[in-house]
């Protein structure tokens, strides 16, 4: 019946909902851009800027050493994401595809750690890292990454659990061990989940601001921390317009990153050719 429908109606049905949704999502973001172009005196008084103030962007880059702290954030976030995704995929694979006594309970333990409010662990975590001499370094994040993330482990476990059982059976008949099966079959087919969780894990560090305040000092801290206090005029008054320019600059590299990862997700599906 869809073949009989005119292409115009069909296109409307395909595009209308997505366009409406995209507009609704984009409005607050567009407002960030508009606000970032206002004079500080226009903020809260006039709806649109009389003339776009590109100087706000210069200020956003110069009021703090933007590139330096962006590099800090990038190094910390990507090292964490890289390691934690590989570890979590392996652990998730173990939980999804291998049976052993105690597995159910251990998995509940994984989930339980996800449910513990971070706040309650703040002081104990600081105490441990301070005793190890690791405050003011990036090591806490690397150690966390090496232990995997409960969130990503859960994600991979759910993802690998959808794979058909025949996959393991066929591979085992060929004499492949669990790790070879993981690296040769599961990991390549997990490209979408790998990309998705890498982004999650990257953002967890990129956007976090409580742990860097707790564990890092002024110089090696992240952009999120610096940005939250740097955009003030010489009198210490907040500059909302410059802050919004900072937000735009903060998000731009992520847009590029996501566009690239998006292509990767699609290609991952096409090239594996394993599904179904």
């Amino acid at each position: 019946m869809s073949r009989r429908r005119s292409t115009a109606t069909d296109a409307t049905l395909r595009y209308l909902p997505v366009l409406v949704a995209a507009t609704a999502f984009a409005l607050p973001l567009a407002w960030v851009v508009v606000t970032s172009l206002k004079k500080q005196s226009e903020f809260g008084s006039s709806l649109l800027p009389a003339a776009p103030q590109l100087a706000n962007y210069q200020l956003a880059l110069s009021l703090l050493d933007f590139m330096k702290f962006a590099t800090n954030s990038l190094v910390l976030s990507s090292s964490y994401a890289l390691i934690v995704v590989m570890v979590s995929a392996l652990v998730g694979y173990g939980f999804a595809r291998h049976r052993a006594p105690g597995r159910g309970r251990l998995f509940m333990l994984v989930l339980a750690t996800l449910m513990v409010p971070n706040l309650v662990l703040f002081v104990p975590q600081f105490v441990i890292f301070a005793k190890l001499g690791l405050t003011n370094t990036y090591w806490p994040w690397i150690l966390w990454a090496l232990g995997g993330s409960p969130f990503a482990i859960f994600l991979f476990r759910q993802f690998f659990a959808t794979f058909p059982r025949e996959l393991d059976d066929a591979a085992e008949v060929d004499g492949a061990g669990p790790l070879r099966i993981f690296f040769q079959i599961y990991l390549p087919s997990a490209a979408p989940a790998l990309a998705a969780s890498a982004i999650f894990m990257f953002l967890w560090v990129w956007g976090d601001y409580l742990y860097p305040i707790l564990l890092l000092n002024g110089d090696n801290t992240t952009l999120a921390v610096k940005m939250s206090s740097a955009y003030v005029d010489p009198r210490g008054n907040p500059l909302q317009t410059v802050t919004m320019a900072g937000v735009v600059l903060y998000v731009l590299p992520l847009i590029a990153f996501f566009a690239a990862a998006n292509r990767f997700i699609v290609r991952g599906i096409v090239t594996t050719g394993l599904k179904g």
């Binding site: 890289l82 390691i83 001499g133 090496l146 061990g177």
Partner: peptide
């Protein structure tokens, strides 16, 4: 293979180490 995998993780950590040393671990003592 498990050991190799473990070595792989260590290698990843080692690869991250130079980046990390850029921000020197200042001792708190």
């Amino acid at each position: 293979r498990q050991l190799l995998k473990g070595a792989g993780v260590l290698a990843a950590a080692a690869a991250a180490a130079p980046i990390l040393s850029a921000c020197q671990p200042t001792t708190t003592s």
